[in-house]
Structure formats: C-alpha cells, structure tokens
Amino acid sequence: MSAINIADVSRTPRAGVKGAGAAAWLAALGLPVPDAPNTWLSIEGGLIARLGLAEFLVEGPASAKLAAPPAHGVYPVLRQDTALVAAGERLDELLAEICSVDFQALGPAAQPVVLTTMAGVTVVAIPAEESGMPALRLWCDSTWGAWFCQTLAEVAGELIQPIPTNHQGATS
C-alpha cells in the first residue's frame, strides 16, 4: 500500500434528506438513524450519516429507499457528490496541509462526522480505518470535485516526493 492512496467512489449510490421530520421518516423506512448530530452508523453495503442537526446522507443500496414520497417536514436533497476514500500511512500529513481540524483529537470510536473545509472546499469527512491504516471518507460537491482531486493528488505527490527547495542559506 502506498503512503497515500486516493480512490474515487463517486458512483456508489447515495441520497440525502433534511428537515425536522427527516429522522422519523427515515426510521419509518426501516433505516437505523444516528441519534447524535454529526455521527454515522454502518448499514448493509453502506452507511447513514447525520450531517449536523437534521440532514442525512445515506450511501449504499438502502439509498433507493429515499425515493419514497417525502412526508411533512421532509425535504429530499439530491446528492451529486464527488466521493473519495483517502488512506495511507501519511494521510495525517496530507490532512495537516489542507485542513485546520484536529482529526487526531476526534477518536473514531465515537464515529464522528466532520463538516468542514479542506483546501478551501466544503467537505463532509468521516475518519475510518482501512486495513489498519488511517483512512478518511470524503464527499464534496462534484463541481469542486475535479479541482479538489487534482489538489489532493498534488499535495500527496509532493509529500511523497518533495520538490527540492533552495536551501541556500535559508535564514531562520
């Protein structure tokens, strides 16, 4: 496994919903609903993430359920994300260049969801583990996706093979 690996999983089916009635509606559809804001749960073939207070992202085959007609206080959110899985030994160094959130301090045990910006792009981030390596699920609006992926690759690339800088008398 390379020091940093970024995989594009945008094609995975997903759907979103928000509103005061969303949690109850999802439960009525038979989905487990994360209680606390900014947490997520595993479901078969995917996950359900509570984004902030009252918005949900469902990924995997279960997302098809969200095509059901919405109820009162339920507002469907069309998801067209660029979705990525970033993993590797040096993932933390990559994150340290693009994001001011301290992921180490989170503790993946609580299954946190982080809504923040990375490299200036709004993202949903979920820390995870992949084959014992630190990993991160990332979603961003697909109109930022191309630039975002390009930038991640650039930063990761430079980490692995630093561009020689002119150390000629660099002053402190």
Binding site: P37, N38, G52, L53, S100, V101, V114, T116, T117
Partner: peptide, 10 residues
C-alpha cells in the same frame, strides 16, 4: 453549537 470549535474562517 452543532459542529464544535472551528477556525473562524469557516
């Protein structure tokens, strides 16, 4: 109140 302490640029 929902997302916790963050840099003010957010």
């Amino acid at each position: 109140p929902v997302n916790g302490p963050r840099a003010i640029s957010e």
